[in-house]
Amino acid sequence: MVRLGDVIATSTGTFTAQCYELYHSPALGDLVKTNGHYPTFGVVYNIYTGGLDPTRKPTARGQNEEKEEDVYNNNPQLKHLLRTDFEAIIVGHKMGSEMLYHLPPVPPPIYSFVHTCDEEDTKPIISNMSVLRTLATSNLEAIEEVISAYIRNGFKYQLDNTEFLKTVGVHLISNLPGELKKVEYILKRVTR
């Protein structure tokens, strides 16, 4: 379990965390969890990097550099002027030792630590199809891509990927009625 950052904004269904290190965010579709009274689980759906001070936009600096890395190497202050944030959609929480697949009574507090999830956390979540419903019915941007990535992450815990895809597919279809093409698109992204 790696600590990634702290919660810096939170609401009923999503939370935002800031990474401790620039660019050290989890990947799209990854499961993350917060500490706190109700350890809360989320799927990363948005990653954002920008200036520490939102009123000051980064400016171009690479014109006289050979390589991209040199921009950072020659401007060590940049690491402190830029930040990486990520946002996660809440898919469940823990009450004591019990995993519940609905929203926690209150969202995680600001400055909760955010961690990656290990196998023990991930396995049951991946095999719980109601998570797909939470994702599929949210109106978040590019959610298809997020679902594809989320499913792909699940592969490493499966004995038979095809069977897993079929199960997932059937659930997606029933949660996205009339949107067969969307389901097809999601499943295609998983394998390609």
Binding site: L165, K166, G169, V170, I173, P177, G178, L180, K181
Partner: peptide
């Protein structure tokens, strides 16, 4: 079918996963 688009714009049924889930769920 639960999805009217199946008639006009059917999914790629050469893909066994699509074929299976479409017939099962849609």
């Amino acid at each position: 079918s639960t999805d009217q688009s199946i008639k006009t714009n059917p999914p790629d049924l050469s893909d066994p996963v699509m074929a299976s889930i479409t017939s099962k769920a849609a």
